[in-house]
């Protein structure tokens, strides 16, 4: 009886092994027709830090191209310090923007220059206006987009999808014509990375649509990588401090762990051997 139970158990085990096998096969087969290209991001990995020139170029792309449709609600000008700008540069940057500032004696709206403590202003007053201007689609806010499109996998890290790769994917994989049999509604484009492949954003980038201050050639892919780096920074601005502190904490705790290991062994020496019992 017990042996039979055990055999049933072993069979179940075999079935689970099969499942896991079948599953990897199914995953491989069911993968998207357009696998996302993976880039080596300088800020990836435990020691990776942001590429500052790339962040600055990304800011330029955002400001000159994307900002006419996409907001960046949670980032203040003061935070641009992290991109390598000094206080005066940030003041000047902020001053290029205008903010409503109450009303004058005739009831007309007044405006003032921006200050470093102001946040990036949104291109549209509200969601309705944004949709109205974009064929009914809503251009999402950029503050967290870099993190909200990730799919991280702890056990199969090679299957992870990173937000930066996804953003580059969106910007860099437009098809001029939709494949055979796909109907493109008015204002829609065909895109490899977007879920469902039909996106309501016209291709925003073309080679040389911006002229980089540092002379880097502004290819579409280059601009896409820069703006993706910038967007990831906007989503996770504390990444650098986090990794630096993490290194210190882990080194400190590892040394302490090793020391406590020896303390523990020392404390237990007699008991382990049973010397007290003899």
């Amino acid at each position: 009886m017990l042996n039979r139970l055990k055999n049933i158990g072993l069979m179940t085990l075999a079935v689970s092994a099969l499942t896991i096998g079948g599953l990897t096969a199914a995953n491989a087969a069911g993968a998207s027709a357009y696998p996302l290209k993976k880039y080596d991001w300088p800020h990836a990995g435990p020691f990776g830090m942001f590429d500052k020139p790339s962040l600055q170029r990304g800011l330029q792309v955002y400001k000159e191209v994307c900002a006419s449709c996409h907001s960046l609600d949670m980032v203040a000008f003061r935070e641009l310090k992290a991109l390598g700008y000094n206080a005066d540069e940030i003041k000047a940057f902020a001053a290029e923007y205008e903010f409503p500032n109450g009303f004058d004696d005739e009831g007309e709206e007044k405006y003032r220059k921006g200050f470093p403590q102001d946040y990036f202003p949104a291109p549209y007053a509200n969601e309705e206006e944004a949709r109205d201007a974009n064929n009914g689609a809503f251009p999402p806010d950029f503050s967290l987009l870099g993190k909200s499109r990730e799919h991280l996998s702890l056990f199969t890290p090679w299957n992870s999808i990173y937000g930066e790769d996804y953003i580059v994917g969106i910007l860099n994989t437009y098809h001029e014509d939709a494949p055979e049999g796909v109907e493109l509604a008015d204002g829609m484009s065909y895109n490899e990375a977007f879920p469902g492949n039909l996106i309501a954003m016209a291709p925003p980038l073309f080679d040389d649509i911006v002229e980089y201050a540092d002379g880097t050639p502004a290819t579409t892919e280059q601009m896409a990588k820069d703006v993706a780096t910038f967007m990831y920074w906007a989503a996770e601005p504390k990444m650098e401090v986090r990794k630096k502190m993490g290194l210190k904490v882990i080194i400190f705790m590892s040394i302490l762990t090793i020391m406590l290991y020896f303390v523990n062994r020392r404390v237990w020496r007699k008991i382990k051997k049973g010397d007290d019992l003899a």
Partner: peptide
């Protein structure tokens, strides 16, 4: 002594998550 050693080791694991894959 044994719990402290275990705790210290556990904090290393916890820290890997907090600082490197939060």
């Amino acid at each position: 002594a044994k719990d402290l050693f275990g705790l210290s080791f556990f904090i290393v694991i916890l820290a890997i998550f907090i600082f490197y894959m939060p």
